[in-house]
Simulated scan of single mutants.
Amino acid sequence: MIIIFFCSFLILFYSYAGYGLLLYIMVKCRRILSRRRVPAGVLPELTLLIAAYNEEDFIERKIANTQELDYPAGKLQVMIITDGSTDRTPEIIRRYPAIRLLHEDQRNGKTAALNRAMEQVTTPIVVFCDANTLLNKAAILNLVKHYEDPRTGGVAGEKKVIAGQDEGAAGMEGVYWKYESTLKRLDAELYTVVGAAGELFSVRTALFRPVERDVVLDDFIISLRINLMGYRIAYAPDAYAMEAPSFSITDEHKRKVRISAGGFQSIVRLKALLNVFRHPVLSFQYISHRVLRWTLCPLCLPLLLISNAALVWMGAGVGYSIFLAAQLAFYVLAITGYWLAGRSVKIKVFYIPFYFLFMNVAIFEGFFRYIKGRQSAAWEKSARSMAAVS
């Protein structure tokens, strides 16, 4: 029981705090040994590829945002793919002749749509962006400057979740992404971002390889396969996509379960990355930042509680009793947060433990969905509180 207790605790601590601390120390040492400078050069031609599915309520706002981007018009091509959309999204886009529209009535999923669109891209750089996000004016400029480094195969932008005043528990998505953004900065400074977010990332067109049609996390797979080719994924925190949080905790739950199912699929498809002898730094980052959270951490939570309770029952010492009391208090806060979330009451002290537990429960659900083969790659549109995005 002592071994189970300490192994569970150490895995959880390392995954959620220890890795970040170790990464910070390693990056500090790297800064002493070398200074990485990104030189300014000639701006390349690029394609901004936007995936849109039934976005008639937001697409005009997205197009207006695209037209305001600070990048030479002659070097920026805008392409929007709307495969499977059944609303007025394609009709609205046709009003803008400068935008290239790709549309098929058949719905094959976002991955299939991106594969089809990439066959039409002729520029050396392609920037992927979701239709329900708004970019800061200098986003494209801040992405492309990193391609002056020939080792850079892709550049990940930052996702910012903009929560309104009454977003409730779903607003904790923003807290989570702030934490993730910090880790991404450190990951990129050590070597590479471990998996780009589809809201905003770019790649060298020549390095793109078509992704299997059943892939759920296309952005994750695309960026890590570029890593396997020997290139790094840089991080541009000054290029960001603003997105509202999920409309409700129910919508966020559906999204998290889908991402979790895709995470297990990705681990299988990217099994070469588990070989730390072949890819020492990349595998270290990948396992520490991603694999542990999707595999061992959800298992360690109940194991830590059960082993702790058993040790207290066996009279192992007062320290275990204090730790058990802290664990029980955490779960009480999380359950209270769940109860409040159902009533749209916003008290942040309950939301952090609730959201942490909520994410790990979603991983269990995603795992069973994956092994049963029930997770479709078909395009899924999440309801979001777009009024929060300014």
Rank of each mutant, 00 (worst) to 15 (best):
L69V: 02
H279S: 14
E380R: 09
A117H: 11
A169H: 06
L76H: 00
I81T: 02
L143C: 01
I80K: 05
G198M: 10
A169K: 04
A112T: 15
D105Q: 11
I81K: 00
A117P: 02
I226F: 09
Q77V: 02
N108Q: 15
T82D: 04
V27I: 11
Q265F: 06
L304H: 04
G84S: 11
E45I: 03
C7P: 00
I4N: 06
S202Y: 02
L43D: 05
V389Q: 01
E243C: 10
P124S: 08
Y179G: 04
F277L: 14
V38R: 13
G230P: 02
L10A: 14
A51V: 08
V193H: 02
I249S: 04
L190A: 08
V126S: 03
W313M: 14
G84P: 13
F323C: 10
V194R: 07
A64E: 14
R31M: 10
K178L: 14
E365K: 11
V161P: 00
L305C: 06
A241I: 01
A188H: 02
M229R: 07
G20D: 00
V361M: 04
S376E: 11
R290N: 15
I4F: 09
C7M: 12
Q265C: 07
A236E: 08
D105C: 05
F356L: 14
L23M: 07
N142R: 12
A234T: 03
V27S: 06
Y96L: 01
Y355L: 07
D187N: 09
V127P: 00
C297D: 11
V193N: 02
A40W: 15
F364K: 04
G164K: 00
L48H: 12
G109W: 02
A64N: 12
V194W: 01
G317Y: 04
V215C: 10
Y355M: 08
A334T: 06
A388C: 06
L328A: 11
I335Q: 02
A234D: 05
L22A: 03
R209E: 14
H253T: 15
